[in-house]
Design a protein around this nucleic acid. Structure first.
Ligand SMILES: [Mn+2]
Ligand SMILES: [Mn+2]
Ligand SMILES: [Zn+2]
Ligand SMILES: [Zn+2]
Lengths: 143, 143
DNA sequence: ATCTTAGCTTAGACTCTGTCTAAACAAAGA
DNA sequence: TCTTTGTTTAGACAGAGTCTAAGCTAAGAT
């Protein structure tokens, strides 16, 4: 059962069949789907669901603070149900798979006062990049 | 005189008037323009320059490794001539102004082995967010 | 149970950013 | 000069996302 569905219940928000299917798609660890991938998965269970509803619903979940909207590549946004534990991301340059990761300390502490340009700095997010085990194996073969 | 123009000379790359205008636009510290902003600025000096040339030229500069392509918001990409000094970014949530910043140490060191999921991790970039001095003043008035 | 009304869903038009194509153009080298 | 290669251009196209207007549901009032 989706943790996100439970969290959404706590808001004054009508849980329609369409919204439930979308919320249930966004379940599990290391989940970072595009709107289009979510539409595909939702369609598998509810073929008549519309693209507009998927976009509307995702934007509402983001507005409620129950889903994160991520911009890694400048193409499509990705949606992440893991808002409970503050985390960063590790992306494979080969295949694009994206893992949730945690750093040893708060990155806000690594920005010294004289690098803050007078800003009130409230948030820091790190994007790590590299090659996943599968793609490393592929690279090795090629050489 | 643009530092980027000098760096581009070192590559086998024809420096046409159009390319020069674009390169000269990308000069200075904390510069992170969108393609459209670059087109506007280029048009001011060369009204007949085309959108396609701006996009072509920016992509070539990125391919040559002399300009960075950044994706902050999932809308338009931004172009950054500061490739010489490894740096991160601090963005104002109010007005969008984006500063180059430097951390006290390499963020790659903050990702422990048991958080690497078997990846060969090669890069880390941090996006800090907050409010710039101007926008802080505005927020204060509102309250 | 029926009515009313606010909210939800839908198809499709539209916008915005960026890429591609094909033709015209410019410049370097033979 | 001629040829060849690389560059610029307008406009068509594509992908991601938003908006609109109409129809549909469902919660609350009677
Ligand atoms: Mn995540
Ligand atoms: Mn920068
Ligand atoms: Zn991979
Ligand atoms: Zn600001």
């Amino acid at each position: 059962m989706s943790d996100l569905v439970e969290r959404l219940r706590k808001h004054r928000w009508r849980m329609t069949p369409q919204r439930r299917v979308i919320a249930e798609t966004l379940d599990g660890a290391h989940v970072h789907y595009t709107a289009d991938e979510i539409l595909d998965r939702a369609c598998a269970r509810m073929p008549e669901i519309s693209r507009a509803t998927v976009y509307n619903t995702l934007n509402e979940m983001v507005a409620l603070g129950e889903v994160l909207e991520l911009n890694f590549d400048g193409r499509s946004k990705r949606y992440d149900p893991n808002v409970e534990h503050d985390h960063h991301h590790l992306i494979c340059e080969g295949c694009g798979i994206t893992k949730d990761v945690h750093t040893v300390a708060d990155p806000l502490d690594w920005l010294p006062g004289d690098e803050r340009h007078g800003f009130a700095v409230t948030e820091a997010s790190i994007t790590f990049r590299g090659l996943c085990p599968e793609c490393r194996r592929g690279e090795h073969r090629r050489s």
